[in-house]
């Protein structure tokens, strides 16, 4: 792969930013670190969500389902296998489910896909609850000696990997194919692109990532039951953060996650009943006030500045 000068620069910036973020636990402030874990988690989820949904325009609400599956893989396996082996296993299982769901629904229009993914978390929750009732135990314990800073660092590493992967996909044939699919799927088919396979491939990436995140977060829950592992709200939060930042660029979701997480924390601590309302208003604000998210706004401002300097 030939690297241009700009690529090295971006890579350097990314590494520096990551290293700086890794210093957070040194503050020793428990609240800050816990907030850091949330932000790091949402950065990974929203970025990997946007890798798939950005170019294809399919809105996936399956994040909570994959996340929950990952949590459960960790919860049911930790007694028998090591933590580090369970992370890739969670990714594999999440990816496999994503592949099956993708093959069944990604051939069809976006509406079918949204509906299907919307119910996926709830359906998985029902199935897990039923299975647990059948076998007679209610929840499982995940007991590890991992602390919040450990989880935070793990999530940062994962975030770095997701960014690298996204960057590599953006430069690959697959990335080019996805941009064409996003513009016009019929044209994509007629120039010889396997549209279904390309979409499924990216959906698998985002599904596997969400499952790994779920597995990483599991030790924080300590006690896992279906209602905590499968929270439909998570899917919506991820969608909003990614769209708020903008899916047009790799760094878009990142700039959406930070303000939204802070806002969410503030609202849910002072008005715990109003989070739903906040979620709804954010959706409407993105559609009517900020289409394209912060990235779209940035591009428009840049375009305007360029036009002005061209005229001057």
């Amino acid at each position: 792969m030939n690297m241009k000068k700009g690529d090295w620069k971006n890579l350097g910036w990314g590494a520096a930013l990551l290293a700086f973020a890794a210093l957070l636990p040194l503050t020793g402030d428990g609240y800050l670190i816990s907030l850091g874990v949330s932000i790091a988690m949402y950065v990974v989820l929203a970025t990997s969500w946007a890798l798939f949904s950005g170019p294809t325009h399919y809105i996936s609400l399956a994040t909570a389902a994959f996340f929950g599956v990952g949590t459960y893989v960790m919860g049911s396996g930790i007694e028998y296998i090591s933590y580090w082996a369970l992370l890739p296993i969670a990714g594999l299982i999440g990816g496999l489910i994503a592949a099956l769901v993708g093959l069944a629904t990604l051939r069809l229009s976006g509406v079918y896909f949204v509906i299907f993914t919307l119910g996926l978390a709830e359906m998985t929750r029902q199935a897990v609850t039923w299975y647990q009732n059948q076998t007679g135990h209610k929840g499982t314990y995940v007991l590890t000696d991992l602390t919040d800073p450990d989880i935070y660092w793990q999530l940062l590493v994962l975030a770095g990997l997701v960014f690298l992967l996204g960057w590599a996909i953006g430069r690959s044939k697959l990335g080019f194919a996805l941009r064409i699919i996003g513009d016009d799927e019929d044209v994509a088919r007629h120039v010889g692109i396997n549209t279904a396979l390309s979409k499924v491939a990216l959906f698998v990436v985002s599904g596997a990532t969400a499952a790994i995140v779920g597995a990483m977060i599991a030790p924080r829950f300590i006690y896992i039951e279906p209602a905590t592992a499968f929270t439909p709200m998570l899917s919506f939060q991820v969608v909003i953060m990614a769209l708020l930042g903008g899916t047009g660029r790799l760094w878009g979701p990142l700039v959406g996650v930070i303000p939204f997480t802070l806002l969410w924390e503030a609202i849910s601590s002072s008005f715990p009943n109003q989070t739903t309302l906040l979620l709804g208003l954010s959706f409407l604000a993105i559609v009517y006030l900020l289409p394209g998210g912060f990235v779209g706004l940035y591009d428009r401002l840049k375009g305007r500045a360029a036009r002005r300097s061209a005229m001057a």
Binding site: K173, F176, A177, R179, D183, D184, V187
Partner: peptide, 17 residues
């Protein structure tokens, strides 16, 4: 393909054809 420039439009054929 509206989001791409002329060259990229033509490359779509060259890359996947």
């Amino acid at each position: 393909l509206p989001s791409m420039n002329v060259l990229e439009n033509v490359m779509a054929g060259a890359v996947f054809g």
